[in-house]
Nucleic acid binder design. Structure first.
Lengths: 126, 126
DNA sequence: GCTTCATATTCCTTCTTGCGTATATTCTCT
DNA sequence: AGAGAATATACGCAAGAAGGAATATGAAGC
């Protein structure tokens, strides 16, 4: 009755559009909040709260870098999370929303590179 | 902005323990409500409402057989659902809760076989 | 110490979900 | 038609989630 809750926790994290987009972007590499804001074009509170939600449940980790908080997927996800991340990757490949997010990230990457803390490397896989 | 909602709908269906158990059991084959009741040891209302929830969202289909309603996974799931069902199958394999449900289903299968409508074949893959 | 920037948290409202009790529906059999 | 079995729905409630506005925290630079 314990490890099944892990699984449910994962699904709870995945069943919101904003969180799905956040996680999907993290699959391209670590990012900080303000970059999420620009790619998703959503207000800071919304981004930040969803990232907190994900962090509390272990779907993302974060690290402070000066003023910036760098978010990333956990370095060693357990079986359930790994399996679901792979599944999401698969489902997101052809999906218009996710494709658009990836395109937008790619387009903004050079701009981000100028002003970013060193731990935040959009477009590079973490 | 449409097909991503399909994906979210799937995750919404998967993020409840009872629904997860229902879907997992259906991966073993079609079942009717009263059999779910016995395997899960949950009240009829609960089972029935969660099945309705799943049906409305296209994660299960059902067919009347006299007094019984036979529930099953959709015969031709689309990519997102198929992918997630496979992922669930993977995650459920070693999970205590799901293992117990499978064991219980197996144990009850002979008893079900006597009283079941013909469309309901617990233990056989649909 | 004060300001500024990036991010987090609090408060409030609205909407959804899950559960249980009770009741309705739908079919079968006589 | 009436009874009984299997399943579904309605209602009320408590809890949680999502959003926005405002405010708080924490680090950096002067």
């Amino acid at each position: 009755m314990h490890s099944v809750m892990e699984l449910i926790k994962i699904y709870e994290c995945l069943c919101d559009l904003t969180r799905l987009r956040l996680i999907h972007l993290l699959q391209e590499g670590p990012l900080c909040v303000c970059h999420f804001q620009e790619v998703l074009r959503e207000p800071q509170v919304k981004i930040s709260k969803h990232l907190s939600y994900l962090r509390e449940r272990g779907l993302v980790v974060c690290e402070r870098q000066g003023n910036w908080m760098i978010y990333a997927l956990p370095p060693k996800p357990d079986r359930e999370l790994g399996s679901n991340l792979a599944c999401l990757q698969d489902c997101a490949q052809e999906n218009p929303v996710f494709r658009a997010d990836r395109a937008r990230l790619k387009k903004l990457a050079p701009k981000f590179a100028e002003t970013s803390p060193c731990g935040c490397r959009p477009g590079e896989r973490g």
